[in-house]
């Protein structure tokens, strides 16, 4: 300041000098946002979109990543899809794997829903020790599926603790992991044990969100317990339940880790527990039929998208009905 004379200070400022303009004036907020997002987008493109497109292309080829490593993929059109969906050879019936998956998903999700909702209904009140009980009930869901499957495998062995209790009851030992007609139920039992708490948690969130005044109004009208449940509780909780069902169905449909540890990639005796995900694994990473494995992955994707759409339509229908 000492170097400035009075005449300089008295001159009015008529324009901003060119060098004082922001150096990155050209960088708009939109550009900055794009630049910050670019690394993530590029990573996503590389890690997700590229494999998706590449595997889609491979699904139309006959190629094995191990046996044909020295040769380029050979295009065969839709032959992989046709073969997978029409092949009637015993070991290759894709349809069977989807049936097995359905045999697992339907009972598992149904039982989890009923049990989870039932337990949530019981917990939806205050009583001593409710917090501790909640935490204990949530423990299975917090464990690693591999760990859960491992200790259930020990318990389900021929001379394991489950059969010990079965024989105490006077019944014959059960081939939990060895009988082709039982293994699917073993998968259901383990899944129900692990994921019922998830259903319980979502149900409890729904139940606690039901406005109390509705029940008070119903009580004034002398409505019975069943009427209150049927016409107040259930409709109010249903959208959340449906979301829980969507999550669990999609998750169960992709079942891999528990089944892999309990029964191996082959799905146990006679492939009776080989879910669609295990089947994809066998085709793509055991047989290394890369082209066919990619096609199978896309068939799974289409099925799950279709299922999710059905659920979302039902959910939207419910919401529209409520409005």
């Amino acid at each position: 300041m000492a170097n400035l004379d009075a005449s300089q200070l008295s001159q009015p400022v008529t324009s901003v000098p060119a060098q004082a303009r922001p150096r990155f004036a050209w960088l708009s907020d939109r550009w900055i946002a794009t630049l910050f997002l670019a690394p993530t987008l590029l990573l996503l493109l590389f890690m997700t979109v590229f494999p998706l497109v590449w595997s889609l292309a491979l699904s139309f080829t006959e190629w094995s990543v191990t046996r044909d490593a020295q040769n380029p993929p050979v295009g065969i059109g839709t032959e992989n899809y046709i073969e997978l969906l029409s092949d009637t050879r015993i070991g290759n019936r894709t349809w069977d794997r989807f049936v097995v998956t359905g045999q697992f998903v339907v009972p598992a999700v149904t039982i989890e829903l009923l049990l989870g909702f039932g337990v949530a209904f019981l917990l939806n009140r205050s009583f001593t020790g409710r917090g501790v009980l909640m935490i204990l009930l949530l423990v299975p869901m917090m464990l690693s599926p591999v760990v859960v499957a491992l200790f259930w495998r020990f318990m389900m062995q021929g001379e394991g603790i489950l059969n010990f209790y079965v024989t105490l009851l006077g019944a014959a030992p059960v081939g939990w992991l060895t009988d082709r007609f039982t293994v699917i139920w073993s998968l259901v039992i383990v899944d129900v044990w692990m994921w019922t708490p998830f259903m319980m948690l979502i149900s409890l969130a729904g139940l606690s969100a039901v406005p109390k005044y509705l029940y008070e109004a119903a009580a004034v009208d002398r409505a019975g317990a069943w009427f209150r449940f049927r016409h107040i509780t259930l409709p109010m909780v249903m959208p959340l339940l449906l979301i829980a069902i969507i999550f669990r169905t999609m998750d169960a449909y992709k079942l891999f880790d528990q089944a892999f540890v309990l029964l191996g990639a082959g799905g146990g005796p006679g492939r009776a527990g080989q879910t669609a995900a295990l089947w994809v694994y066998e085709v793509a990473f055991s047989n290394f039929d890369t082209g066919q494995g990619s096609a199978l992955g896309y068939i799974m994707l289409v099925v799950i998208i279709a299922l999710a759409n059905v659920f979302i339509r039902v959910l939207n229908g419910l919401k529209a009905g409520q409005q």
């Binding site: 191990t66 046996r67 070991g91 060895t178 082709r180 082959g266 005796p269 006679g270 492939r271 047989n287």
Partner: peptide, 23 residues
């Protein structure tokens, strides 16, 4: 054989069933 894995998988599936008396 390069087709070993596929051959093995089929044999294992049915052999296990037959030896255990389920087929």
């Amino acid at each position: 054989l390069p087709e070993y894995a596929a051959m093995l998988s089929v044999q294992g599936e049915f052999l296990n069933l037959a030896i255990s008396g389920q087929m």
